[in-house]
Design a protein around this nucleic acid. Structure first.
Lengths: 355, 355
DNA sequence: CTGAAAGCGCTAACAT
DNA sequence: ATGTTAGCGCTTTCAG
């Protein structure tokens, strides 16, 4: 089934068939009807790649994420995918488990014609690619990572951290520890800086004995294990235990809570915890945390990327989302949280996502 | 940059250039070198769609999943994606939130040339598509869903359920309840049947007052909310409380545990729970559950699909994985599970996935 | 408004 | 072994 077949059947030229399918106005509604009729009868479907080749446009976007099984990315991707569908775009997803794979995927994305643009998540764009992407003017938008020469979407870690710490302080905590991810991650650095700054601003003291930066390279320390070991390590130190912790991600909190429970500590009674992300399972653990609007980030990423595709030379722009404090039970507030809470219910399934 | 450019520069014909890039043996290593040299100098990349058009092969597969934010699918997809990459294939992912979207995606997948084959997850293939897919011989493999005319990959719900129940019985439980998903889902039906059968086989009695099938349509009742409400409903009944529950998915267990805790019950002391899936967060909740080998399912799905692509007329085949019982703390065994347990550690990150 | 024809970049069959 | 040519299926001039 090609346009030739349907052209022959409808007794028109292939150009006309093409015009009909491209909604060209210069076609009599009469011939249009005729063509449509034949096309549906023959169950015609345009060949995607032939179209792409002729149009020089693939209607396909690609997304490169660090880890497949990371809720943060999945939730952002949901926003991406759902806003892409109505536009007729398809999404290719690449999970880059290491630097080598990242480069492989980046190369594929640059491969002419493969995709119209790409989304890079939380990964630093290797130097050798920045030149290539800019030179070839390949549309690229960065999500949760930054480079001055490309569009990006970020979360304000400074404000987010400040809000989290001030929540703890407002609850009466004076000795606050931090469990951080690996400092080679930019968000980890920003969160640490803001943590210290906020503590000092409130006349409290930063005690480095209760601040732990992960040395794990796996997922840059944003992992359950990293959280577990950091907390266990800290609890074994011969120091005055903090009454509260700021932990740089929900997933680390879950590990840290494991370590706390092992030692017999109760949350929030013995120690309060506030973390960052608000991934879906945060509510199952009743975690007070800084919410990142992942779905919205995905939507905006798509918007930016599509804009870039249309406007190759527009000035680069960057947008920062401000995270919101979500109060659940891990800081001793709102202890009577239940699964009934309609605010909490259903936030995690597509049909009821905040849009 | 096209083969013409590099052909001109290298002073050869375009055919030769093409041959070099397709590793044709009929080319002198001399000319090959020359071509490669020019190509790398000009930073040439073959145009994916032109290739696809000429080869009649896209090197792209698509996967249709019911919900984006469902760990089961994500984990299977990880297996899919990782086994695809080395083969040079790309993966397009479609999240179908409803019947309409499902049909839209199926149509896209059938669109000639778009993909070489598709993977359909846990969704019933609508009748009108079975004919089309078979007629047009479009490669399709079903994962966690079944149709006699297509290849499929399944999990043995009957054996899985039997194993789970017998574990409970071996622990001394005699009054066992079940919280099930919506019976319009095939796995839910199979699990219910096997539950009753196993109970009876062991000389126990099936009490319908402690068996609840979800009426939720959202995700067919495989959701936290469905689990929560089912359990709450059951606990409010004026009956003898079961000492143990078989719950048809981990995600429902998490909801059910919420309901149990609200009523002041402790797990596993007051009630034991065994469920199904072993999604990543099951271990965070210390859930004893039937493990589905999701990563392996993804790998096998790819293998089957690629085979089908090469052998359009091979007989249809179906493979059933047998789930394994993973004993954690929710049945009162192995209570001293810690985050240290190396068996448990790292199972959830790509680099250390069981292969 | 419509048909014919020239690509889009590549592969593969056909010559040489 | 290598160059040439005819498609792959569609879009888009260019005539008419």
């Amino acid at each position: 089934m090609t346009i030739y077949d349907i052209a022959r059947e409808a007794k028109v030229g292939i150009g006309t068939v093409s015009r009909v399918f491209n909604n060209s106005p210069k076609v009599t509604s009469e011939t249009r009807e005729k063509v449509i009729l034949v096309a549906t009868r023959l169950n015609y479907q345009p060949h995607a790649f032939a179209q792409a080749l002729a149009r020089k446009r693939s209607n396909t976007l690609s997304a490169i994420i660090p880890f497949f099984t990371n809720y943060f990315f999945i939730q952002v991707l949901q926003g991406v995918q759902e806003s892409l569908v109505p536009l007729g775009y398809d999404l290719i997803i690449h999970g880059a488990n290491n630097q080598e794979q990242l480069e492989e995927y980046l190369s594929r994305s640059m491969r002419k014609g493969r995709t119209d643009g790409t989304l890079l998540f939380s990964l630093e764009l290797p130097d050798k690619f920045v030149e290539e992407f800019t030179d070839k003017k390949i549309p690229l938008v960065l999500v949760d990572t930054f480079h001055p020469q490309f569009d990006s979407i970020l979360v304000d870690n400074t404000i987010g951290t400040k809000t989290a710490i001030e929540h703890l302080i407002s609850l009466g905590h004076r000795r606050i520890g931090m469990i951080n991810a690996n400092l080679k991650s930019a968000p980890a650095r920003e969160r640490l800086l803001s943590f210290k700054k906020t503590i000092v601003e409130h006349g409290l003291e930063v005690d480095d004995a209760i601040v732990i930066n992960s040395t794990s390279t796996r997922n840059d320390g944003f992992s359950r294990e990293a959280g577990y070991f950091a907390m266990r390590n800290l609890l074994e130190r011969d120091i005055v235990r903090p009454t509260a912790f700021f932990i740089s991600s929900d997933i680390q909190s879950i590990g840290a809570i494991g370590a706390l429970k092992e030692k017999g500590f109760r949350i929030p009674d013995d120690v309060a915890i506030v973390s960052f992300d608000d991934i879906e399972i945060a509510k199952y653990f009743d975690l007070t945390t800084m919410h990142q609007p992942m779905y919205d980030m995905g939507e905006l990423a798509v918007k930016k990327l599509l804009f870039r595709i249309e406007n190759l030379s527009a000035p680069v722009s960057s947008f920062k989302f401000t995270p919101d404090l979500i109060i659940r039970g891990s800081c001793g507030k709102n202890k009577n949280y239940t699964f009934n809470d309609t605010n909490e219910m259903g936030v995690h399934e597509p049909t009821e996502q905040p849009r």
